[in-house]
Amino acid sequence: MRRSNIWLWSAAALAYAFLYIPLLIVVVYSFNDSKLNAEWVGFTLSWYVALFNNQEMLTAARNSLIIAVSASFLATLLGTMAGLAIHRYKLKFLPVLVFTPVAMPEILLGVALLLFFLQVLNLTLGMVSIIIAHTTFCIGFVAIIVRARLQGMDESIFEAARDLGASPWQTFRLITLPLIMPAVVAGALMSFTLSIDDFVITFFTKGVGEPILPIQIYTMIKVAVTPEVNAISTLLMLLTLTLIIIAAKLDSGILRRETK
């Protein structure tokens, strides 16, 4: 047993190293006093200064935050409903609709929504189209998390509430909602992370004149790579890291439930 453990540990350590070293390098070079991500020259904060003077980048960050907050709000609302409905009623159609966008390569949803927005809604692409697109694929994730939470619960509580004369609404508000709250929060956080991270669908549904963070980063990577990219990356990591820590504090079990 012990020998196999050593094998396991070293394999796992390699995997962890593989996961973290690249990110570490990005962070380290964000403080490097050289335009090239090659040799270490000296410590500087100038890339962060440049970043905070980059009006377009700040606007992009703001736009992405607005999109992520709106999309995760909508997705949490609709996804929680979907999760409840799928768990409680024998529905055939809804589960297919909810889970398919999650299982599809993103590019397909991006293409379909692009064509739809242009041909049917005649909508000028912009923040609204991105929010709708992000909501569409986040609903499924929220529903999965909420349903998993419901599946793990003791049904007799609801029965007891009913026996005590609670209306369906009262049962929902006083029993169900508090019980699924951790899953709802986890779903909201996951949607937020997915939305702020999403590149592919944003790429297809974005409009003009409103810079969006992932698109800005993509342009920077493709056109002129400077350590400003590293700086914005580091800040983004900090933001999502904070969110995850808050989530973990909020309910230490969120993660386990999420993965089930």
Partner: peptide, 26 residues
């Protein structure tokens, strides 16, 4: 439950604050 919802609103507030901060600049 109350602790949880307090924490939730704190989180929401933090997110909104962040959004607000950068929107001022904009």
């Amino acid at each position: 439950v109350p602790v949880r919802s307090t924490a939730l609103s704190a989180l929401l507030a933090a997110v909104l604050l962040l959004a607000g901060c950068s929107s001022q600049q904009q």
